[in-house]
Computed example of a mutant assay.
Amino acid sequence: MNESNNIVNDLAVVVELFNVYALLLLFIGGFMLWAMNWGLNRLSQKVTDKMPTRRFLILQVTTLISFVLYTVGSIALIIGVLNPPKEFLLAAGGSIAVALGFALKDIAASLVAGLLLLFDRPFRVGDRVSFDDVYGEIVSIGLRTVRLQTLDDNLVTIPNSRFITDVVASGNAGELDMMVVTDFHIALDEDIEKARALVEEVIVTSRFAFLKKPVSFAIEEVIVGYKLAIRLRAKAYVLDVHYEKAFQSDIVVRVSQRFVEEGIARPPQ
């Protein structure tokens, strides 16, 4: 009988907490949190447009503020609106923790991993990263997932927990500039130094090149179409990661034209 009375009393407390007025306040509060976060992102975009060189720092600060806003705001909203008794909080918290521990262990792992990503920072918002077979720019680091925009304009969503156990490579590590590697192949009997000089000339005259960092080459013999050829691997820096493919395309087109003009033969097919 006592146990039945306790259950009835607990249900009465729950019904009293989640009345129509409280639910309405929770809805309004949740909408306000969303609106504040939306306004923060809009403000961040405007500041980024005016200060493009500080884009990565602005995006990182925005992500951290958004994380704190949702976490602290949600907790404050629940406690402030519902104002549950201390005993109810302890009992509900224990029950919810056990249930969530089993049902949402993967999500919980991603939430913890999200905190680690924010503070350990193996990559940052705005970085160009390679993860598994996906390459692109990190556009957001959320509570549960990381969103990555590929160069084909696909938005890829990856659980945070994947980044804790798998290998991820960051191309620019929070910097605006980034190394771009481009390969050129020439026939074995061609003048290697002349070809290298032509490629370097094209690179340093590109409007996308970041000339404060050096241009370097790795030259070796490789197999192209079952025949030996010389590979000129040019390593140069683009001034902004957004121009990565534009920089590479500019180099390839102009080098190909110069090779034709100077009579530098490609490997035989």
Rank of each mutant, 00 (worst) to 15 (best):
G94V: 00
L116C: 03
D106Q: 13
A109F: 10
S95P: 04
G101R: 02
I78M: 13
I65D: 02
L115E: 09
L117W: 14
I65M: 07
F67P: 06
G114I: 01
L117T: 02
F67H: 00
D106Y: 10
A97P: 08
L89R: 07
A91N: 05
E87K: 09
G114N: 10
L89S: 09
F88T: 06
G94M: 04
F123W: 11
G126L: 02
L69V: 13
R128K: 13
N83V: 10
L111C: 08
A108G: 02
N83P: 01
F102Q: 06
I78G: 09
E87Q: 07
L77Y: 02
E87M: 01
P85Y: 01
P85C: 12
S130D: 13
V81F: 14
A92V: 08
F88G: 01
G126V: 05
A113F: 14
V72Y: 02
A103W: 14
A91R: 09
I79C: 11
R124D: 05
V125W: 01
L90H: 05
K86Y: 11
G94K: 12
A108L: 14
A99R: 01
Y70T: 10
L69I: 09
R121L: 07
S66L: 11
P85S: 15
L82Y: 03
I96N: 01
L111A: 07
K105T: 02
L69D: 00
D127S: 06
L90W: 14
R121W: 03
V112K: 06
Y70V: 14
S130R: 04
F102N: 00
V125F: 04
